[in-house]
Amino acid sequence: MFQDLKLSSKIILGFAALIAITAVLGGIATFNMLTVRGQSVMLTEEYVPEVEVATRLRAASNGLMYAMRGYGLTGIDSYWREAETEAGLLDEALTDARELSESSKHLKTLASQLDTAQQARNT
């Protein structure tokens, strides 16, 4: 059947096959780009802010711990004022983390860890 076609018909079929292959590859590439776009949005809107708030939580809790240790060992009021400042920063970070946890559907472990952190803060 293919051998019975004219040369012009064979060339047209060849170009049609190339166009079909190009369209399929273009569709696959578009699908992959949309998938990557979704993942990058999730990264920038959920996971990067999670790292930022976790870093703030850690810094504030360490600062609070060191200030309270300094006050406990020396009784100097500047350590107490520093501890109050760090406690405020810790509360702000906990509030931000809770808001992030509520607005993000992919950060499931953050919510359970926030309860533990809040309990530790309250004691």
Score class of each variant (00 low, 15 high):
residue 123 T to Q: 15
residue 89 L to V: 03
residue 88 G to M: 03
residue 77 D to P: 03
residue 70 G to D: 15
residue 18 L to D: 03
residue 95 T to K: 14
residue 88 G to L: 00
residue 46 E to I: 02
residue 33 M to V: 04
residue 91 D to P: 06
residue 8 S to T: 07
residue 79 Y to V: 01
residue 107 L to R: 04
residue 120 A to M: 13
residue 37 R to F: 12
residue 75 G to M: 09
residue 118 Q to H: 11
residue 6 K to H: 06
residue 25 L to N: 10
residue 88 G to Y: 01
residue 44 T to Q: 14
residue 4 D to V: 01
residue 107 L to H: 12
residue 42 M to F: 15
residue 62 N to Q: 13
residue 35 T to M: 12
residue 98 R to N: 03
residue 106 H to K: 05
residue 71 Y to L: 11
residue 11 I to A: 09
residue 117 A to D: 08
residue 1 M to Q: 07
residue 32 N to T: 05
residue 69 R to E: 12
residue 70 G to T: 09
residue 24 V to E: 01
residue 92 E to H: 04
residue 90 L to E: 00
residue 66 Y to P: 01
residue 56 R to L: 08
residue 27 G to F: 13
residue 70 G to K: 11
residue 52 E to C: 01
residue 50 E to W: 05
residue 18 L to C: 07
residue 91 D to E: 14
residue 18 L to Y: 04
residue 2 F to H: 01
residue 30 T to V: 11
residue 43 L to H: 11
residue 79 Y to F: 15
residue 86 E to L: 00
residue 12 I to M: 08
residue 68 M to I: 03
residue 123 T to S: 12
residue 60 A to E: 03
residue 121 R to M: 07
residue 91 D to G: 04
residue 71 Y to P: 05
residue 112 S to G: 05
residue 20 A to E: 01
residue 59 A to I: 02
residue 62 N to T: 10
residue 117 A to K: 02
residue 16 A to C: 08
residue 120 A to T: 11
residue 88 G to D: 04
residue 99 E to W: 06
residue 56 R to W: 06
residue 50 E to I: 00
residue 10 K to R: 15
residue 11 I to P: 00
residue 98 R to C: 01
residue 112 S to H: 08
residue 21 I to W: 10
residue 95 T to W: 11
residue 29 A to K: 13
residue 53 V to C: 05
residue 17 A to W: 01
residue 72 G to A: 05
